[in-house]
Simulated scan of single mutants.
Amino acid sequence: MPDASLNIGNARTLRWVDPGVLAYHRQRLGGLDFFRAMARGEIPTVPIYSVLDMRLTDVERGYCRFECDTGPHMVNPVGGIHGGVYAILADSAAGIAAQSWIEEGSVTRTVRLNVDFQRPLTAESGTVVCEGRTAKVGRRIVLSDATITDREGREAGRAQGTFMVVPATGSGSPSGSSSGGPPPPAGREFLAEWGDTGAIRAATADRTGLELLSMIADGRLPAAPIGQTLGFSLESVGDGTATFLCAPAERQYNPLGTVHGGVPATLIDAATGCAVQTKLPAGYSFSTVSLTCEFFRAITLETGSVRCIGRIVKHGRQVSVADADVVDRDGRVLVRGTATCLAHPLR
């Protein structure tokens, strides 16, 4: 089964390859050669890359380049590309640039990611490029930067990542078949379906942010397509708060066989933004200006469902700050983040 995804109206068949195949090739090739083989198309790509139409096109020591075709499955409630997609692109490019320096037997894990949003993207933006470059390489910590540019070469986002060097583990899936070769390249697929985001834009004109989000939470208005794509939903909202629920899934996986760090970053962007939205009057929306996430524990299928709880920290007439925690079923904080948001009339 191909690892590309297919658009059909307000639905998309998401396709990816069993992470066990990637685990086998990662053990066989090692860090830099593994990613170079992926860029050349010699081995399958990563689940989250397939789902978001991301293509790894170039990897060198200290450098990484992705292309991404924007589409309707990536958008937020008002039709723009969700800030979480920026975070996934940036974390991927900066992380691979960091990994390119690491000796065999070790990997890098994201401990901090900061994303600054400079230009909105839409489903019609076409192919965007994300480039990652290492800024400083230490024995235990690697710093990398990433930039996202649109097809006209204009910068849409910029990010800085801090990555910790840790011993490689057997995360992922089976390392091979009983004969010692790669496991069969079993394909996976999931049908993501969503409603008309135009209905949300229309409802924004005469409903407060809290009223609007309450209608999404109880199903009277459709949820954002990105939630269907990545597997999360708005569970509840209150005055200055918003809670999202997410079930870890294979399609969210990164090259190391855990949920990609950009997925909890997406949850944090959603929860902080919606917490701000609950304070806005009718006819207003918001844009995230910056997002910072700190990662404490990896998320896998075994983690079970996680919640992301967003809260207003400081609400202003134009600029607001909110924070959010991603917690597991035992209440342990897995990822923590803060966002700065700018309110504006819905354009």
Rank of each mutant, 00 (worst) to 15 (best):
P182N: 13
G170C: 13
L191V: 09
G187C: 02
P182A: 11
S178R: 13
P183Q: 07
S173A: 15
T169H: 09
G180I: 01
G176M: 10
A159Q: 01
L191E: 07
S179E: 14
G172Y: 06
P174S: 15
S179C: 05
P174E: 15
G180H: 09
S171P: 05
Q160E: 05
E193P: 00
F163Q: 01
P183D: 08
A159R: 00
A156E: 04
G181D: 08
A186S: 03
G181T: 09
S178C: 03
A192W: 02
F190W: 08
P167W: 08
R158C: 07
P185N: 12
V166M: 12
S173G: 14
E193F: 02
G187M: 10
G181R: 03
F163C: 04
F163S: 08
S179R: 14
E189M: 12
T162M: 09
R158Q: 10
S171M: 13
P183H: 03
E193I: 12
A156C: 15
S171T: 12
A168P: 05
P174F: 14
R158Y: 07
M164D: 04
G181S: 09
T169K: 06
A192C: 07
A168F: 04
S171D: 10
A186Q: 05
F190T: 07
Q160P: 08
V165L: 09
P185F: 09
P182D: 15
S179P: 11
V165D: 01
A192T: 02
A168T: 13
G157F: 05
P174I: 11
S177D: 15
G180W: 05
G176K: 01
P182Y: 04
P182F: 03
F190C: 07
G161L: 00
F190V: 00
G181A: 14
R188H: 11
T162A: 05
P185R: 06
G180S: 14
R158W: 06
T162W: 01
T169W: 02
P182L: 04
G161Y: 04
A186P: 00
E189I: 11
V165W: 01
L191G: 02
T162D: 14
P185A: 10
S175E: 10
G172C: 04
T169D: 15
M164K: 05
M164G: 11
P167D: 06
G187Q: 07
G180L: 04
P167F: 12
G157D: 13
P182Q: 14
W194F: 04
P185I: 10
P185D: 12
E189K: 08
Q160C: 06
P184T: 13
R188K: 06
G172N: 03
P183T: 08
F163K: 00
E193M: 10
G157H: 06
A156H: 03
E189H: 07
E189R: 03
G181V: 06
G180D: 13
G161E: 04
A192D: 09
S178G: 07
G161P: 13
R188L: 12
P184D: 07
A156S: 15
A168R: 08
P182M: 05
Q160M: 10
L191M: 09
G180F: 06
P174A: 15
P185Q: 14
P185C: 04
W194T: 00
R188V: 02
M164H: 01
A159S: 08
G157M: 01
E193G: 14
A156R: 03
S178T: 14
P167Q: 06
E189A: 00
G161F: 00
T162Y: 00
A156G: 07
V165M: 03
L191D: 06
Q160W: 00
P185Y: 06
